[in-house]
Write a protein that binds this DNA or RNA. Structure first.
Length: 154
DNA sequence: GCCAACGTTGGC
DNA sequence: GCCAACGTTGGC
């Protein structure tokens, strides 16, 4: 099986691509995913070497702002075990982790973000999951064709 | 701040 | 297992 492509949303007020750029080694643990479908992607389908778009959501100009590479997978999200964390989940435990995360390294920050409205205007992307009505998943698979189409928009 | 759409919870 | 109520997401 080949490598996968993903789109990962983050609210820039919480964690932006510049925060990632400033992180040690430009690596981050993508913590706080609390949706089962997204969790299943993280736990079961992410592979080392996969590439992911960094997407800024819930902000003035929602956009793809860069590319990350998956460097570690299948790690339990221990913020679920920390009562002081906003991501605390009493139903998770060290012995039986409920939530997982991956580690990502910044590959590229785009000089010009690819905005949501630009994505919507590209007829080749009409089937993209991000653009489907009512989509709320914070982690979405991207097809290889979509990935290439989007890179061609840079 | 609004609201459509969706996910989760919990009573039955 | 159903489904109403509630909470969250996220664009606008």
């Amino acid at each position: 099986m080949g490598l996968n492509y993903w789109l990962m949303k983050s609210e820039p007020d919480t964690f932006s691509i510049d925060d990632l750029k400033k992180s040690p080694k430009q690596v981050t643990a993508w913590e706080g995913v609390r949706n089962f479908q997204a969790r299943n992607f993280l736990r079961d389908q992410f592979q080392v070497g996969d590439l992911a778009f960094f997407y800024h959501s819930s902000c003035k100009v929602p956009a793809i702002v860069g590319i990350m590479e998956v460097i570690r997978t299948g790690l339990p999200d221990l913020t679920a075990c920390d009562p002081k964390s906003p991501y605390y989940d009493p139903k998770s435990s060290m012995a039986a982790p409920r939530w997982y995360l991956v580690e990502l390294k910044l590959k590229e920050k785009f000089n010009t973000p690819i905005t949501l409205s630009a994505l919507k205007m590209n007829p080749k992307l009409s089937k993209m999951r991000l653009l489907q009505r009512g989509n709320r998943l914070s982690i979405l698979p991207v097809s290889q064709t979509e990935w290439r189409t989007i890179l061609n928009m840079l």
